[in-house]
Simulated assay, not measured.
Amino acid sequence: MSRVGKMQLALPAGVEAIISDHAITVKGPLGTLIQSLNGLVKIENVNGSLVFTAADVSREANAMWGTLRALVGNMVTGVTKGFEKKLNLVGVGYRAQAQGAKLNLSLGFSHPVVHEMPEGVTCVTPTPTEILIKGINRQSVGQVAAEVRAYRPPEPYKGKGVRYSDEVVTIKETKKK
């Protein structure tokens, strides 16, 4: 039995869930998200809350039960509050500048790095060393943050690079003679 799948998902005011045969659509104040459905999980709207049940008794159905409940829960959170990831640039001369749907990064390379933002994801730079990535789809926000971090991940000796704001980088001691 899935602990996550057993929990009902209450829909807040202003959020509407439309369940069809092959997909569930969640509409809210910030936008609309669509998730394809698996035949192993049944979804019902009961008195303004979504109830998830496994279609049969199998290992795959049990796994998809909790997974689909978590994905739809993230969709509801995304269309009401949204998601954001904060990145920090650590290093001399490391800067970021958001220009529309592009993020210009100066990361110590001989060339500037330009990262295109996908549809539904926005980027803001409150200071030259901070990047805020926002959107309603949790997966795409996390993916964009991971791609930006991958340009220059934090190195273990000085800690220079692009890191998440809550990331702890363990600094290694240098080699001794």
Rank of each mutant, 00 (worst) to 15 (best):
K6V: 06
G28H: 01
K6Q: 12
A101H: 15
H115N: 07
V15A: 06
T80E: 12
A13R: 13
T125Q: 01
H22E: 14
A150R: 10
K85Y: 11
Q143T: 12
R138Y: 12
E173C: 04
Q139S: 13
V168N: 04
C123T: 15
V114R: 02
N47M: 04
V51E: 06
A61V: 05
N62R: 10
L50C: 08
A145Y: 03
A55H: 07
G14I: 11
A13H: 11
T25W: 02
R149V: 09
S58D: 14
E44F: 03
H22G: 13
A10W: 13
A17L: 05
V57A: 10
N62E: 07
E130C: 06
V57M: 12
L132M: 13
F52D: 00
H111G: 03
E167Q: 09
A54F: 01
A98L: 04
G73F: 05
R69A: 05
K160M: 07
N137A: 14
M75H: 05
G82D: 06
K176A: 05
L30G: 12
S140V: 08
G135S: 14
L71S: 10
S106A: 15
N104T: 13
V57I: 07
G14F: 06
T127Y: 03
P126K: 02
F109R: 14
P29L: 09
